[in-house]
C-alpha cells in the first residue's frame, strides 16, 4: 500500500464520445502517488480510451482530469509540460523507426528538456543497463525483438523522469516468451515506487503487483478494489462472468 496519500490524478465525470458511440459514460476515480493501478475489462469497455484521456491523446468530450491539481482537459499550451511528467508505453511500442535506440531515448530529454547531449546519453546508458540492453544502444528498432523494443520504450519514457507511467496493454503485441521480460521491468518499476496505471490482460501481474484494480465495463468503472477484493470476492455478476472467462 502506498505510504503517501497525496493525489496525483483526479478523474471527474470523464466522458468520451466518438460520433454516436459513447465510450466513456462518466468515469470518476482518484490515483495517489505510488499506487500501481491495473485496469481490466473486456474489449470495448473503454480501458484504453480512459488511459489515453489521462495525457489527452484523446480529448474527452466531458468531465475533467486534474494532474497534480492542473486540468489536463483545459490545459492549452501547458499540455506539453503536463505530458512531460506522464510517461506512456504503447501496445505497439512506437519506437521512432528513424532513430537509433540511444537517439530514441535522448531525443525528448535533449529537445524538450534542453538537457546536454552528453548528460542525456550517459543517463540513457544507465537506464539501458537497468533493463539489460546497454549493448543495443546503437541498434535500430527494426533490428530488435518485440520484448527488447518494449523495454526500450519503457526506458524512453523513464528518461523524462515522469511522475506517473501509463501503460496501454504493454504485453498484448508480444510473443508469449517475451511477456515475462517486460513484466519483470514493470514489476521492478513498481517496487521502486513509480506511480503506474496499467491497462492489461495479464491477471497474474495484476494480482501480484497492483495495489488497486479497476474493472471497467461499458464505459464506467464497475468495481474498484484491492486484488483480493476483485479476484476473490467479486461483487457483480458481470465481474464474476469476466473472471470466469479469463482465469479458467
Amino acid at each position: 500500500m502506498p505510504e503517501q496519500n497525496d493525489v496525483i490524478l483526479k478523474v471527474q465525470g470523464l466522458q468520451m464520445r466518438f460520433g454516436k458511440l459513447e465510450v466513456l459514460k462518466g468515469v470518476d476515480t482518484v490515483i495517489r502517488r505510488g499506487e500501481v493501478i491495473v485496469v481490466i475489462g473486456a474489449s470495448g469497455a473503454g480501458k484504453s480510451t480512459f488511459l489515453r484521456c489521462l495525457n489527452r491523446l484523446e480529448t474527452p468530450t466531458g468531465g475533467d482530469i486534474l494532474f497534480e491539481g492542473e486540468s489536463v482537459v483545459h490545459a492549452g499550451r501547458n499540455l506539453n509540460h503536463l505530458r512531460q511528467r506522464m510517461g506512456m508505453v504503447f501496445q505497439q511500442f512506437n519506437l521512432f523507426n528513424n532513430l537509433s535506440v540511444l537517439d530514441n531515448i535522448t531525443l525528448a530529454p535533449i529537445i524538450v528538456k534542453k538537457m546536454e547531449k552528453a548528460a542525456a546519453q550517459q543517463e540513457a546508458m544507465q537506464l539501458l543497463a537497468r533493463v539489460g540492453l546497454q549493448d543495443k544502444a546503437q541498434a535500430f528498432p527494426a533490428q530488435l525483438s518485440g520484448g527488447q523494443r518494449q523495454r526500450i520504450a519503457i526506458v524512453r519514457a523513464l528518461a523524462m523522469h515522469p511522475d506517473v507511467m501509463l501503460f496501454d496493454e504493454p504485453t498484448s503485441a508480444l510473443d508469449p516468451e517475451m511477456v515475462g521480460e517486460v513484466l519483470d521491468v514493470m514489476q521492478q518499476l513498481a517496487a521502486d515506487g513509480m506511480t503506474m496505471v496499467v491497462v492489461s490482460h495479464e491477471m497474474g501481474f495484476a494480482r501480484k503487483v497492483a495495489n488497486r484494480i479497476l474493472f471497467m465495463e461499458n464505459g464506467v468503472i464497475l468495481e474498484d478494489g484491492s486484488p483480493e477484493d476483485i479476484f476473490d470476492h467479486p461483487a457483480s455478476d458481470r465481474l464474476k462472468e469476466f473472471l470466469g472467462k479469463v482465469l479458467h
Binding site: 512531460q84 510517461g87 525528448a108 524538450v112 524512453r156
Partner: peptide
C-alpha cells in the same frame, strides 16, 4: 503511433513533425 509517442513525451507538433 509515431506521432502519439512523440507527443506523449511532451514534444510539440512541430518538433514531432521535424524530428520523427
Amino acid at each position: 503511433g509515431q506521432t502519439e509517442a512523440a507527443r506523449s513525451l511532451g514534444m510539440t507538433a512541430w518538433q514531432t513533425m521535424r524530428r520523427v
